[in-house]
Design a protein around this nucleic acid. Structure first.
Lengths: 354, 354
DNA sequence: TTGTACGCGTTATCAA
DNA sequence: TTGATAACGCGTACAA
């Protein structure tokens, strides 16, 4: 084997052209005569040169073609959430035309403290831009340093300073619609199953104090919407958004004496679990209990139910984030966007039983 | 605003030291006197310098700290699979100590053909290494060029040339164990629900021709294990690994005259769906029908069932891939690994009804 | 259409 | 403990 990788200079020399010409052959930025191109390509083949070194190209260009995505959980957990998956899909799509790929990063504020592993960070990775998805407030510092480096940042469903473009949802209004819907059906005994209230993710009934101390934006906003219509509805906080958590919640809800006739769940997965718990308890949905979800995602295994829910434009959110990144990379500035959910009536809600 | 970002040279000049000294202050590779360090740090703060440009550092070092991960589907679909999630988690962990992050790449062979979007590829991204997860054979070409560039590659559950380290599972033996288990319970009328047979992902009953034309390794190997014990079991191919697909399969299986008393599903999700379909059809599990899964993952919403299944070391696979990458990056060479599944008996299998 | 010259921002090496 | 030097491999004005 040879001692060193071939560079474009080697190729140029072998082909008998200048390095710039060889470069142009690969980038296609400038017309090159067919004869020259062939000579260069042949030389490249001979030398085993497979194209410009991305590292060098990236230094020269000032672009790496990499967009960092910061998730607030470890991968598996983050992607457990269908909304996250859809949003990532949208982001992937909208970022591809930029010639960029997504680099998975973790919110160091939550992890790095534990043990001092290195790992790529917002500050050490060769990023062209960064997208923060639903990250905790603690990451402010990294955010600051990234912005200091002049790297465009977009925040999706998270709490960032006001001068960062944000992609958000009308969580409160949307949840209010669902509550209205239930009230219109005559429901008065309604319970709410919430997403985690804080990073601690404590599960169980929620008292006034805990309710006042909610730190997760999404949870707080959706709850506010429910409260607009049902100020006194009892609250059960789940530890995560999953069917199993919904089942746990449902069991608790349906166990007591004053069984609710309707449940506002803050996610479709939770709603699916609540429905499962209802069936398990011999309650029929929606005859005995109405259940609403939130997100409008496909819940694997929920058929034949079709949830009454708020459909959120999940992949559009990702796409919007990508577009914002593209805009900023382009020198334009990106505005924050507030997406709207659509109420969709399924077969899981019905008139309140008398 | 100033005209240009500060560089380490600017910082050095301001601090009255040489660039190399300033560099060392940031990298910590060499002891520096406290006084000097302070001067440099102060200068950096003054100039708004937040640390070395990763692009330049990466060119100089010859390392980017990025490991590419090629998935054979779009993100959302890939992460729909719990095994993929776990594997990615393991990979993330084992790659973090390397100071590396994961860059999400798509199998261009499947996508690029469609439309000619640029997007990051195996060949244009600044990768230190690449991990291919369950990718189709078509990607051979990219694989070749990557290897030509001297980039270490590891393949997980996919079909690559023999000279690439592979991380695989004893699919056949494992599935055979499940089949043995069923035979031990006296089952003779057994059906198999498979993962997709080919990239086309056609759903339905499988004839001999189709069975002979299976292109997906995992599917073929697991089926072989089932065939070792039940050479004549009827086959239903699902279009993906999901509960809903399992339901569809189950309905088909339980509709016919010769209803099977046991079902070997090639994934836990499929098994969960089959169970759901059984319940739906008034069959009790395991009294009327036994069902086995494959993977040993937590299926959200499956409780109170605990599947009889083959537990595969999913995150270990990811970790092994990361370790292999680390080894190769280190100049050592990495061997292929064959992981073993563990049979776990749950409450979804029982004696064949008489 | 092709070639020349230079700099992108760092860091490894070695000498002081 | 610090500093000088020399790449790292490429792209792009600009000139020819």
């Amino acid at each position: 084997m040879s001692t060193r990788r071939a560079t474009i200079t080697d190729v140029a020399r072998t082909a008998g052209v200048s390095p710039s010409t060889a470069s142009v052959v690969f980038s296609g930025k400038t017309p090159v005569s067919d004869a020259t191109r062939r000579r260069v390509l042949d030389a490249a083949a001979t030398l085993g040169y497979t194209g410009p070194d991305p590292r060098a190209a990236s230094l020269r260009r000032g672009r790496s073609g990499i967009v960092g995505v910061v998730l607030d959980l470890h991968l598996g957990a983050a992607f457990l959430d269908p909304v996250t998956r859809l949003t990532m899909d949208g982001l992937t799509e909208s970022v591809a035309p930029l010639g960029a790929g997504l680099l998975l990063l973790r919110d160091r504020s939550s992890v790095a403290a534990e043990r001092d592993e290195p790992g790529p960070t917002l500050t050490t990775a060769p990023l062209d831009a960064a997208v923060l998805m639903g990250c905790s407030g603690l990451l402010r510092e990294s955010l600051a340093s990234v912005r200091a480096r002049g790297i465009p940042v977009v925040v999706v469903e998270g709490d960032a300073g006001s001068d960062v473009p944000q992609i958000r949802l009308d969580n409160r209004e949307a949840q209010r619609q669902a509550a209205h819907h239930l009230r219109g059906l005559g429901h008065t005994r309604v319970a709410v199953v919430t997403l985690p209230l804080t990073d601690e993710r404590a599960r169980g009934w929620v008292g006034a104090d805990a309710e006042a101390a909610i730190t997760v934006d999404v949870t707080r906003d959706r709850l506010a919407g429910a409260r607009d219509v049902y100020p006194d509805a009892p609250l059960w906080a789940s530890a995560s958004s999953s069917i199993d958590e919904g089942v746990t919640a449902g069991r608790a809800l349906f166990a007591g004496p004053d069984r609710p006739t309707a449940v506002l769940a803050q996610s479709d997965l939770l709603a699916a679990g609540v429905i499962r718990a209802a069936e398990e308890g011999g309650l029929r949905v929606p005859d005995d209990v109405s259940v609403t979800g939130f997100d409008g995602v496909v819940v694997d295994g929920l058929a034949p139910y079709s949830l009454t829910t708020l459909v959120q434009p999940a992949s559009e959110k990702g796409r919007a984030a990508g577009d914002a990144v593209a805009a900023m990379l382009d020198g334009r500035d990106a505005a924050s966007i507030l997406f709207t959910c659509t109420f969709r009536e399924g077969n899981t809600t019905g008139p309140a039983p008398r």
